[in-house]
């Protein structure tokens, strides 16, 4: 079944002609902010969004339309997020700061019970993702949460399409292992696949 919750691809296509920062920002900033929130697991996306579009500004003249604009933007967003996460991790280590809470604003009309359930789930999923290597983390977010197809994941992560399924299998095994370690009471009867590190 083709699920609407699983976008078949990043829904942005464009030709390279006539693109300028203003136009790209106006048309795609909202989508990029959604991606930033998804990739960070946090609502505060302003600084990252600004950095993404600074990179877009620098690289836009060299965008020839070989890749879809959406894939190109997603790849930039992912790299900016990864770089910022590295800096943040270093800051946390140096200054013994705590990891910020994970939470994402979603449907404003949800009931308090649904909100609580969603918040808990977000907190758990992103806490486990935090234990994984950046590539595994990105792979799982792109596949499990964004629902992107292998071809697009391969382009964004610069993998061969054939390797996506294998990498995904390993990333999932590592996720399961960390999930069991951190939340044994919730892990219950999940598949005990071996995690290779």
């Amino acid at each position: 079944m083709a699920s609407e919750s699983v976008p078949n691809s990043i829904p942005i296509t464009d030709s390279a002609e006539g693109l300028d920062l203003d136009r790209v920002y106006r048309e795609h900033a909202a989508t990029v902010s959604h991606w930033v929130r998804r990739l960070t697991g946090q609502n505060d996306a302003s600084d990252t969004l600004q950095e993404v579009f600074e990179v877009v500004q620098r690289r836009l003249p060299s965008f020839r339309g070989d890749a879809q604009l959406g894939t190109w933007l997603y790849a930039i967003t992912l790299r900016v997020v990864i770089a910022q996460r590295r800096k943040a991790r270093l800051r946390r280590l140096l200054f013994a700061q705590a990891q910020a809470e994970f939470d994402l604003d979603t449907e404003p009309t949800e009931s308090p019970a649904d909100h609580l359930m969603r918040r808990q789930a977000t907190q758990i999923v992103y806490t486990v993702l935090e234990q994984l290597a950046e590539r595994d983390r990105a792979l799982l977010i792109l596949f499990e949460l964004e629902g992107l197809p292998s071809a697009e994941i391969a382009t964004i992560l610069r993998l061969r399409e054939n390797n996506v399924a294998v990498s995904l299998h390993r990333a999932r095994a590592r996720f399961r292992a960390q999930f069991r370690r951190l939340f044994p009471e919730r892990a219950g009867g999940i598949n005990h696949g071996q995690a290779k590190r």
Partner: peptide
């Protein structure tokens, strides 16, 4: 199943509100 329940419950984040997008635009 436990992971299925968990991933189903993680919502779809909303994009930033227009005012916040406008602020970033001005900074750019």
């Amino acid at each position: 199943a436990a992971l299925a329940e968990l991933f189903r419950a993680v919502g779809d984040p909303k994009p930033m509100p227009p005012e916040a997008l406008a602020r970033v635009h001005d900074r750019l």
